[in-house]
Design a binder for these strands. Structure first.
Lengths: 340, 340
DNA sequence: CTGAAAGCGCTTACAG
DNA sequence: CTGAAAGCGCTTACAG
């Protein structure tokens, strides 16, 4: 900058002003500075500018792993608003390591990010809540809000803003639809509890059963990893038990696809012999045979809203978006309609 | 920092040294500084540190869109090495806008990033090459290499480093396999040329035909968008033309899935009546019925290697990784084996 | 509209 | 091992 100023025959203050943009500078001198900069191949040092508090701050996005369209779509939403306002998006993963998570928070404090988005499911329970509260405080020290995305707000901590979609309502809508089709023996396959998403989604299942006056049968609830293979195993065992399940709702599309596999291995037709619904609406899943009926969460929107809060473009607060149920070919009336 | 130093009764120089880590400090004074920092809730200003040339620099990742596992897996590879060396990963999209692309490059110059990774297919032709060369020069001014990922190097510009996987060999391996199964009328469905990936993958198809002494038939090559719907249309027309195609290789899994759909709509069984192969090996595709035989590209590895080059952990250069063909259920001998 | 000066928060030779 | 001082590259009141 000093060199540019010298070459243009002005002070660094003036030169700074032409790049800073804000203040009024004589068009002529401005041109002179600009051409000097051009000749010298000058490019402002954004780091120095950032230090003085000017310049855009980064939005930090931290998630467990860069897996699947959940991640990609949500991140795309964040990036779309970051881009239009000249901010950069930093993405990091914790790989499930609390140590790494803590390191990242420290790093973001040092970097003076605009906000940090904690994305996706996390452990339930006081331990995890406490950690989030710590992070929130630490970040607040440097003026950065902590925004929970795709995970529920913390009881008793309204200061920790959250942007989420209604897992419960999503699963419940799927169950409602199955009930409307005539199903009564509706199974549920999901990950073991302990993380927010498994807990809340199963909660939606139970809630929907209750409001439809269907008694919950523990035998109809099976646990598995969030993988096709393990789901095929778990749902397979359920089917082998012959306890009359006419439909299964998978906690995720992965799990639903595992149910497809289990059914096929037993020569059961979908949806004639077994209805299956998923959750997430990942690509391709609509092109299975039959297409998977599933819950479509507004991932992109979640990202957009979180980013807007991060940048102060929208008042911070708790937002809960509605997912929608998209019915494709994997749901139909049961073979035998049990009277209600 | 000044406050911390004062409270600890040392100079800022000494205080700086305890946080900088490098220099040797008396353990006792160090402890004193640390506890002073703790009491004051001090956290180093990474921005200021960055300005002095210390502190980790960001890796910039630029892609057209945050779409699909291609993006996510490659980014995960980059992030894994960034994480272990304390660097941050910034991800941005161009959405196909050259203007936006240029803006990003400028932004990264200002931010003094460690390197920028240009990820994914781009236009072919001198215009695009020229742009990349410009970017490379501009970035070199600030000491940042430009690394092309998942796209080929530029003729005559060895200074533009690239990390890619061998699209040609991947498609060719798939074709070879089909030929080995007895296919002779092998169709190809892909995007129109103009971008590197469509061009190179189709090239792989033609090359494989040639080396298997199969004459290319222009009627067997159809164009479509990279979407299931448009692929279903294009492949459908091909099938309706009844020109004896016994197999189709899709430029991507999306396109291959479109071929599934087209075949089904015409009551053709896969693989009995039609063999289908894809490219990318995205999730779920293995769980179609039948599972899709496809080419698995080493996306994660590409990301890892590019990141290592970005950080100087590995000599910059041109790397070409081998994809592997994974055969599942969508490939089988043709109904009628044409003599070779 | 422009300049001189102080300051942002750190780091690093250079001396002790 | 530690301190005083200069410097990194910008920005911003404060005066003109």
């Amino acid at each position: 900058l000093r060199d540019v100023a010298a070459r243009a025959g002005v002070s660094v203050a003036t030169a700074s002003r032409v790049f800073g943009g804000s203040e009024r500078v004589n068009p002529e001198t401005k041109a002179r500075v600009l051409s000097a900069a051009d000749e010298l191949g000058y490019v402002v040092n954004g780091l120095a500018r950032a230090m003085t508090g000017r310049g855009p701050r980064m939005i930090a996005f931290v998630t467990g792993a860069m897996i699947g369209p959940t991640f990609a779509t949500l991140a795309a939403g964040v990036e779309s608003v970051a881009a239009t306002s000249g901010h950069l998006l930093s993405i990091s993963t914790t790989q499930g390591s609390l140590e790494r998570e803590q390191e990242l928070i420290n790093m973001f404090r040092e970097q003076r990010v605009a906000a940090v988005l904690l994305v996706g499911s996390t452990g339930v329970g006081i331990r995890f809540a406490r950690r989030a509260v710590e992070y929130g405080k630490a970040l607040a020290d440097v003026g950065a809000p902590l925004i929970l995305c795709g995970r529920p707000p913390l009881d008793g901590h309204p200061e920790l803003v959250s942007v989420d979609y209604d897992h419960r309502a999503g699963v419940a809508a799927a169950v409602d639809r199955l009930v409307a089709l005539g199903h009564r023996r509706i199974a549920y396959a999901g990950q073991p509890l302990g993380m927010t998403t498994p807990t809340i989604r199963r909660d939606g299942y139970r809630k929907a059963l209750r409001r439809n006056d269907i008694r919950e049968d523990p035998q109809l609830i099976v646990e598995c990893d969030n993988s096709e293979a393990d789901s095929a195993r778990a749902v397979g065992e359920l089917l082998d038990a012959q306890i009359g399940a006419s439909a299964v709702v998978g906690m995720t599309d992965n799990i639903a696809v595992g149910a497809f596999r289990a059914a096929r291995a037993r020569k059961l037709r979908i949806p004639t012999d077994l209805s299956v619904v998923g959750f997430d609406d990942v690509p391709i899943v609509g092109d299975l045979t039959p297409g998977l009926s599933t819950v479509h969460p507004p991932f992109f929107e979640v990202g957009v809203i979180a980013a807007e809060m991060a940048l102060g473009l929208r008042p911070a607060g708790h937002v809960l978006l509605e997912p929608s149920f998209v019915e494709r070919g994997s749901t139909a009336p049961p073979r035998v309609v049990t009277p209600r």
